[in-house]
Nucleic acid binder design. Structure first.
Length: 137
DNA sequence: GCCAACGTTGGC
DNA sequence: GCCAACGTTGGC
């Protein structure tokens, strides 16, 4: 099962907002970037991802899960744009900040470091475990 | 609030 | 199909 990272500005749509959507989750709409869209197209139901707060917080704060395969983005009239549905799974024990991730040598190749602006990113199994472990510290 | 990075658009 | 202009993202 693959892992991902979803980025959102908490002032627009925070992890708390996603939790409020409950088990059915919500469309991860509004993505207008081909790479991010292609990542969503390869997602499977049950794939889990980190939830990252950009602009404020600057940290991975929770875990979410894909509950619906890629489908047309209902907020776009342009048929190019697809998105998946996601639901919140749980908070991390504590947020893992971007600053921490940047100082962790084993995460130097993480997309969050190398492709900061990509809004939906792949996370390797190794990176997934490392960040989870950091949240336990 | 600034500015660098980078993705997208549109004229040619 | 190229590339300059422009808009947006997001850390600082």
């Amino acid at each position: 099962m693959a892992h991902w990272l979803f980025k959102s500005e908490p002032s627009k749509f925070s992890f708390a907002d996603l939790k409020a959507k409950g088990a059915a989750g919500t469309e991860w709409d509004g993505v207008r970037n081909y790479l991010a869209r292609n990542n969503m197209r390869t997602m499977q139901v049950g794939d889990q991802g980190f939830y990252y707060h950009s602009n404020e917080g600057l940290a991975v704060v929770g875990i979410c899960e894909v509950v619906a395969l890629s489908h047309p983005d209902s907020t776009s009239a342009d048929p190019r744009w697809d998105c998946v549905d996601v639901r919140a799974v749980r908070d991390l024990k504590r947020p893992v900040t971007l600053a921490e991730i940047k100082t962790e040598p084993s995460l130097s190749k993480m997309s969050l470091v190398t492709s900061m602006r990509l809004s939906v990113q792949p996370v390797t199994d190794e990176e997934w475990e490392i960040v989870l472990a950091m949240a336990e510290r």
